[in-house]
């Protein structure tokens, strides 16, 4: 899915990284706990979170994530914007709550990590 489509589906406002909207993302992960996110590795992933501090950007950066969606209209700090710009990460903010934002992306084909039941 193109990052532009993520923006459209979530009716999100772009904070930074406008020039990267044509890039693709292949999976997503939603959490407010950063170590939960760090347990999950996938290429070109989107991070959805309600947490706002610099560690959100550093976590995404460590994971090579390309796009961060802040849910519930959370406003990023200046430091977050600075760090996201420096790392080439698209950041956007949506009015939707976590559950709904994840659900909309999932329903449109952006799935998470499969759980193996064996």
């Amino acid at each position: 899915m193109k990052i532009a489509t993520v923006r459209e589906l979530l009716n999100a406002e772009i904070v930074c990284g406008e020039e990267l909207l044509e890039e693709h993302v292949y999976s997503a992960c939603g959490s407010d706990m950063m170590s939960d996110v760090l347990a999950y590795v996938k290429d070109q992933a989107v991070l959805l979170t309600g947490l706002v501090n610099s560690q959100v950007i550093r976590t995404a950066e460590m994971m090579d994530m390309v796009c961060i969606v802040l849910v519930r209209s959370k406003k990023p700090t200046e430091e977050m914007v600075r760090l996201a710009k420096a790392s080439g990460i698209v950041m956007m903010t949506t009015e939707y709550r976590m559950y709904d934002a994840c659900g909309m992306l999932y329903a449109n084909g952006l799935i998470g990590k499969k759980v193996r039941h064996d």
Binding site: M33, L38, L51, V56
Partner: peptide, 17 residues
């Protein structure tokens, strides 16, 4: 600490993984 996004008890297991 949890309200800062940490304290899930996943850090050390992640480091090992």
């Amino acid at each position: 600490v949890q309200s800062l996004g940490f304290g899930a008890g996943m850090g050390l297991p992640n480091m090992k993984r």
